[in-house]
């Protein structure tokens, strides 16, 4: 019973956090938690293909970055009073930019998936990386949209007339999206499609013998995962008021992967643990030493070698021992 209350408790705690942070005079805490939630969405979307579907994609930042730029470019045209491709007017309305970002990421995931999913294993890792690098190179050289420097989204977006420049407003938007996303993901995991995906992860040959063509289902999962990352990228753009080529870089794909592995591949809550651990360590270690990556690497080694299934797996075996 307490296990079922845990998500509810977490949501309540997250909802109270801005007040507590304010009271403790720790405004940085609110921003840290907001970033953790965004990265948790992105990592969880990667976990949908990597953990639930067994597809090791090393190009997940492509969709995160595309979502990021979709918001940035729409805002750019809004501020400029010009239109994209000559006919799409810009906007700062979050109710339009957010779905647009998801749609763009999903479309690119469909295109990349159609080609990349014809390969497997190392080839799949490399081809997803290659596509992500192509998109990265494209945006870096796109001088009209800031090139190397990225795009500043000065006044952020608006939602129902409220400016999302307000850090507390955007915090609650991020919280609402994160709660919605994880609820949706939980449904997907237990759905008809989730069951087929779990079968494909375990044994594709068996699924073919059941009359399932794995390609279609892997592509569907790939598109759903791309859309999730696009949503996270859009939130990041509004939160930081900045669309950056960094969100497309291969190191970002690596960070998502580290979060998933730290938290526990295939675990539903793993990406939340992974994102939280990664960002907390990143922030605190970086303020302490510039060689923070050394400690991150040691932790990753420990988690991979000494736990079964990352932090989520370690918690699970800890619970089992004290039952």
């Amino acid at each position: 019973m307490p296990r079922k209350l845990l998500p509810l408790l977490l949501i309540v705690a997250l909802a109270c956090l801005p007040f507590v942070a304010d009271w403790l005079d720790q405004r940085a805490l609110q921003s840290l938690v907001a970033r953790i939630m965004i990265y948790a969405i992105a990592a969880a979307s990667l976990n949908l293909i990597l953990g639930f579907g067994g597809m090791v994609s090393f190009g997940h930042a492509a969709f995160f970055g595309l979502g990021n730029y979709a918001v940035g470019i729409l805002y750019f045209h809004f501020a400029d009073s010009t239109s994209l491709f000559g006919f799409i007017p810009g906007t700062d309305n979050f109710l339009i930019t957010f779905p647009a970002a998801i749609l763009v990421a999903g479309l690119f995931a469909l295109l990349i998936g159609l080609l990349a999913l014809r390969t497997e294993g190392v080839q799949f890792i490399m081809i997803t990386l290659a596509f992500a690098q192509m998109i990265f190179a494209f945006f870096v050289s796109l001088n009209g949209y800031g090139g190397d420097d990225g795009l500043i989204i000065r006044k952020a977006n608006t939602l129902f007339g409220m400016s999302l420049r307000n850090k507390t407003t955007i915090y609650y938007v991020i919280l609402a999206v994160a709660v919605g996303y994880f609820f949706w993901l939980h449904r997907v995991k237990g759905s008809s499609f989730g069951n087929i995906l779990a079968g494909i992860r375990q044994n594709e040959k068996r699924m073919v013998a059941l009359g399932i063509n794995p390609f279609r289902y892997k592509l569907f999962a790939f598109v759903l995962a791309g859309m999730g990352a696009g949503a996270a990228g859009a939130l990041m753009a509004v939160f930081l008021r900045f669309a950056s080529p960094d969100t497309l870089a291969w190191t970002k794909s690596g960070e998502f992967m580290i979060m998933v592995i730290l938290g526990g591949v295939g675990s539903f809550v793993g990406p939340i643990w992974g994102a939280a651990t990664f960002l907390v360590l990143h922030d605190y270690l970086a303020s302490w030493t510039e060689h923070w990556q050394l400690f991150m690497g040691l932790l990753l080694l420990f988690v991979v070698l000494r736990t079964k299934g990352g932090i989520a797996g370690a918690i699970e075996s800890f619970r089992a021992r004290f039952k």
């Binding site: 949706w184 449904r187 997907v188 237990g190 759905s191 008809s192 499609f193 989730g194 069951n195 087929i196 779990a198 079968g199 375990q202 044994n203 040959k205 068996r206 699924m207 013998a209 059941l210 009359g211 399932i212 289902y217 569907f220 759903l224």
Partner: peptide, 30 residues
């Protein structure tokens, strides 16, 4: 060639599911 992490019942269940073609719904509960 079976699904090693699934139980006997789950292996049969997914075979029924595949035959019925109920495979693309993402918001039901299998």
């Amino acid at each position: 060639n079976l699904l090693g992490e699934f139980t006997v019942r789950e292996n049969l269940g997914i075979a029924v599911q595949a035959r019925c073609g109920r495979t693309l719904r993402i918001l039901d509960r299998i």
